[in-house]
Simulated scan of single mutants.
Amino acid sequence: MSIGNSPESPEDDRNFPADDRDSIGRALQQARVAAGLTVEEVSASTRVRVPIVHAIEEDDFSRCGGDVYARGHIRTLARAVGLDPASLIEQYDAEHGGRPSPTPAAPLFEAERIRPEPRRPNWTAAMVAAIVAVVGFVGFTMFNGNDGAGQAGAAAEGPAPATKTTAPAKPKPVKPKPVPSESAIAAAPLDKVTVKLTATDDKSWISAKAHDGKLLFDGLLLAGESKTFQDDERIDLILGNAGPIELYVNGKKVEDTFESGQVERLSYTKGDPQAG
């Protein structure tokens, strides 16, 4: 015989409606799969280690090292896969006791207590410097006096012989500066595929492979940085954030309509740029 309602009574389920939202980990995992990215690619673009990405997608935040780091990882992963980080952070705070409070500043008297003592003046070094200055001044005065006496003796003997004057050399003609080419890689070889990527105003994760599958580059391209790749037949690209990328293929700029956060898979061969 039991007293009161059982903890598993169906009446309690009716009083507390279930939350129909996906968990944080499942939402991140589904967005990553929809974007066509692997865990390794997301890890390379966000610098979040692969085991931590796996743990977060399984809603295990114990490996993040605390709520502050967990919130930072969730925000970074959400941006990488194209989700709004604000809603996921709000969901995390609701499930883990709210937003962590800021760390209080240290008292002012503690900073004053560890202030280093002022150094005493080094009188010995000052004296040595003064002696060196006096000796130098005396030597300079004596040298100028001897030089003046020599010049006076030369003037008394008679005028110095006239020196032979030479005609000034003709200035060399200045070569005109070369006019810069229209493209930064306009002289790309015709028998190869040449691709240049520049991150204009934001960073982007990129991956570049040769026609035989050899990995040429895999990592972040920070704002203002450029990378150039060449292959005999074809270059395959994956752009994790295609919006800020400026692309030149075989010496010609590729006019694209990529947006920030958009993932693009591209292939280019010799000749005019043709996206695969």
Rank of each mutant, 00 (worst) to 15 (best):
I52G: 00
I52Y: 05
V53Y: 10
H54K: 02
A55C: 03
A55Y: 07
I56A: 02
E57P: 01
D60C: 01
F61A: 02
S62K: 15
R63C: 05
G65S: 10
V68Y: 06
R71Y: 04
G72W: 07
G72A: 14
R75D: 08
R79T: 11
A80R: 11
L83M: 12
L83R: 13
L83T: 09
D84A: 04
D84F: 07
P85Q: 07
P85T: 09
L88T: 07
E90W: 14
D93I: 01
A94S: 08
E95N: 03
E95I: 01
H96I: 00
G97M: 05
R99P: 02
T103W: 12
A106D: 11
A106Q: 10
P107D: 11
A111R: 09
A111K: 09
E112V: 06
R113M: 15
P116Y: 06
P116G: 00
E117G: 01
P118E: 15
P118G: 05
P121T: 14
N122V: 02
N122R: 05
W123Y: 12
A125V: 08
A126E: 14
M127E: 15
A130W: 14
A130I: 06
I131H: 07
V132W: 13
V138W: 12
V138S: 07
V138H: 09
G139Y: 08
T141P: 01
F143P: 08
N144A: 11
N144Y: 13
N144F: 13
G145H: 12
G150Q: 12
A154R: 07
A156P: 03
